[in-house]
Design a protein around this nucleic acid. Structure first.
Lengths: 260, 260
DNA sequence: CGTTTGCTTGACAGCATTCAACGTTGGTGG
DNA sequence: CCACCAACGTTGAATGCTGTCAAGCAAACG
């Protein structure tokens, strides 16, 4: 797993990840964050960005395998992924796990807690990660006097709903290969938006996690990977995925994907 | 697929066409609406309710089969179902339909439009219906000076996300019988909250619509109904459903449903 | 009253799951 | 440094659930 590190990080700025420097001492501000064009303040002017700086209370680390929050815990605020990778999951009464999403840098976690002031899923780090904490009280009061933020926040919640609807359509109507192809293309797009190669990616999750996200068993996921490779669409070596024939992958998804 | 109907689009203009009593003459106000304990203003005091009265611009009728809004149309606001029954659906490139939800009195439609200022699904009336129109601009400005409303609106969006996550879990992890049982119990609960019998219900949707909502084919839905009947859990006569053994239905779902 | 639409049921096929065995990788401790 | 272990991934064979195709029936509609 050592070679994951060789991938270029969209690396923010001065403020990061130096073990010598406690995070609490770092300047935590949207206005000088490298992710500002992906995260909450997309499209904000510099003046607007500065107004956001009071919003982010602090930044916290979540080590691989640890939970940022868990089902039932009180909702306190949202979390913006600063670096790393998360999954959100729910667990059924009989112990089956269902992954509801994967989140990477610039994406928000915790919206599920708005409904009942308590989280209804677990957010688990799939690698050592950092998140910015946006206390809900803060968000409420700042967006109260700052219309652009309010609008933006609504937009982000809307995006979450749209995303969920797409996943529902995927789970309800696609066959295994279409599901996996959709998943890979979506992942590639999001990575590309963050400055990574869109054709060469390293999965942060197991086959089983992909499976429960896509409504498939891990063996089915594995078989699909193998099939895509044998058909020359992918190169698969464990979690290292190379998209060889993007067009073919897209063609697989074309009919099943949804109109705008 | 040729028979996809071009249903008449509802005209959101001079609301209604009832000669005897134009809706415009009715008092359109949350403060004296019988649904206020189910709809947007759940839990509001009377004083707060009155502040909402400026929010609802007008009420419009949508006849059975007609669309309240369609994919691609500009987002203008939210709609609260006043009476009647809706489905929201998306359509894939190759013409397959996927139902993303069913909405009854007191529930909100249109949240999908927040993301991109355009709707990404169709809202179709399954019976003659009425909706209250809540222009987004209005909602924005009122909630700006009225914290309780802002909080409530966030809560409602959160609920939508939670609902979607439950559906995702259903689609990803349950077998056909569990899906249908979950669906029926959910429907019964919502009807009960509206003062209807929780054990005797009339479906407003076809087997096919249930199917695309649950990720099943209509034949499978039909077979499940028959099986539930033969096992004494339901009485099924077309769309008239009687829940005979609620406990058995719940037991079917128990293991698969999700922890709080 | 005939036509259309929706619902039910049967027979069969196919895709994904299940069960099982084996291979690979990375970490741990001797 | 190597051996071993645990977690993860791959593959095969068989089962089974759901989909597909088809026919017939019931209800709604004009």
């Amino acid at each position: 797993m050592a070679q994951i590190k060789t991938y270029p990080r969209v690396m923010p700025t001065s403020e990061c990840v130096d073990a010598a420097l406690p995070l609490s001492a770092l300047r935590v501000a949207c206005s000088n964050c490298g992710l500002r064009d992906l995260c909450l303040p997309v499209g904000f002017s510099h003046a607007e960005l500065v107004r956001l700086d009071g919003l982010v209370a602090r930044r916290i680390r979540v080590y691989k395998g640890a939970s940022l929050f868990r089902t039932g815990e009180p909702f306190e605020g949202l979390y913006a992924v600063r670096s790393g990778f998360f999954k959100t999951r729910t667990t059924s009464e009989d112990g089956r796990e269902h992954v509801t999403g994967f989140q990477m840098a610039g994406e928000l976690l915790g919206l599920d807690g708005l409904a009942a002031d308590a989280h209804i899923c677990d957010a688990v780090a799939l690698e050592d990660s950092q998140v910015c904490v946006i206390p809900y009280a803060q968000l409420e009061s700042v967006s109260h006097e700052f219309m652009t933020l309010q609008r933006q926040f609504h937009r982000i919640m809307g995006r979450e709903i749209v995303r969920d609807h797409r996943v529902m359509a995927l789970l309800g109507g696609m066959r295994s290969e279409e599901r996996l192809a959709t998943f890979l293309l979506n992942l590639a797009d999001r990575l590309e938006a963050r400055g990574f190669s869109p054709s060469s990616l390293v999965l942060r999750m197991t086959r089983e996690e992909i499976g429960t996200y896509l409504g498939l068993k891990l063996e089915t996921v594995s078989r699909c990977f193998s099939k895509f490779q044998s058909e020359g669409m992918l190169n698969v070596r464990q979690r290292q995925i190379q998209i060889v024939d993007r067009v073919a992958l897209q063609a697989l998804v074309a009919g099943a994907s949804f109109k705008v």
